[in-house]
Design a protein around this nucleic acid. Structure first.
Lengths: 163, 163
DNA sequence: GTTTAGTTTAGAATCTTTCCAAGTTTGGAG
DNA sequence: CTCCAAACTTGGAAAGATTCTAAACTAAAC
């Protein structure tokens, strides 16, 4: 039950180790190769609750993996998204796509000032999905529920400064 | 197209003319100038239910407005977004930002096959917003609620073809 | 009319993401 | 264990989308 030491609280249903194993299993099950690069990226994603961009992943992994190419990061993220293990979130005020591994029902909150994205657990999101499917006739594969606004910290900060 | 698509059903609470007037009023109220370019873009946005990109707006307006610059389209959209009159939606499979003027509570449904985005009215979305604000402490400015799936038409079409 | 601050414009610059050709590695077959 | 073909990675070039810039223009106040 001892969880691995992750940098942020996980707030997710499965442990980082479980998620990492699930990623690797899914890659194999899909007939894809387990390369060192893919292992590193899966490890990285399984051990974070942030919503990194491809660039961030690349920069964080580069020191321990000097040969890594940005194209490989994109390729691997693409594979993981297609396998449904990772979600691609639209930009958070910046121009880049943010990726997340939390596939539990929840909402994303994007701060338009500091560009951070945080998760808000929302179990009833699952119920919304079936309502949407029924009302629209769509066969739903996934959802991206993002609210945009200003986080409490940035609200406080802007009370002091006027410009 | 050279003519405006006023005849399209709007599926929105206010008429195109009302929306256009509201846009122009808001620009003036904010102390901004009513230039010919801004009028044209407001007119365009008020009269469509699609979710155009800046490029699409630019191309549609160019024939009637040869001097129009893409930068101006971006500038004006930026202004309208900041005034809360238009929402900027993350990419719908492509890489571009899509803009929409339907600020009534609703959900976007994106078809992964034909890449169309349609609106699904959902009055209770407003209630979700206040729940989210309360639970998170965020000051919410907008939301992007997208469900991904396959639209009824494409489901029917794909019964013959395997992918 | 004049004035002037806000706007527009074209094109360059920037940034993210994709593409490509060539070299490298994985995992299975022998 | 070795070899092979397909899958993968890599760096750099290319493609787009968006932003920046500096000069020319114009809405609106006086």
């Amino acid at each position: 039950m001892a969880s691995t030491n992750v940098s942020t609280s996980t707030a997710q249903n499965s442990s980082a180790a479980q998620r990492e194993a699930r990623f690797l299993d899914a890659l194999q099950a899909a007939g894809l190769r387990l390369t060192a690069q893919r292992r590193a990226i899966c490890h990285y994603l399984a051990n974070t609750d942030s919503h990194p961009t491809a660039q961030q992943i690349y920069e964080d992994l580069k020191p321990q993996f000097p040969s890594l190419s940005l194209a490989t990061v994109y390729n691997t993220l693409d594979v993981l998204v297609r396998l449904g293990l990772v979600y691609a979130l639209g930009g958070a005020g910046d121009r880049a796509v943010h990726y997340e591994t939390n596939t539990d029902p929840h909402i994303n909150l994007a701060c338009l000032v500091c560009h951070r994205v945080v998760d808000l657990p929302m179990p009833e999101v699952g119920a919304w999905e079936s309502r949407v499917a029924e009302a629209s006739g769509f066969k739903i594969f996934g959802a991206r529920l993002v609210y945009y606004g200003i986080c409490p910290e940035c609200q406080r900060r802007s009370q002091d400064v006027s410009h």
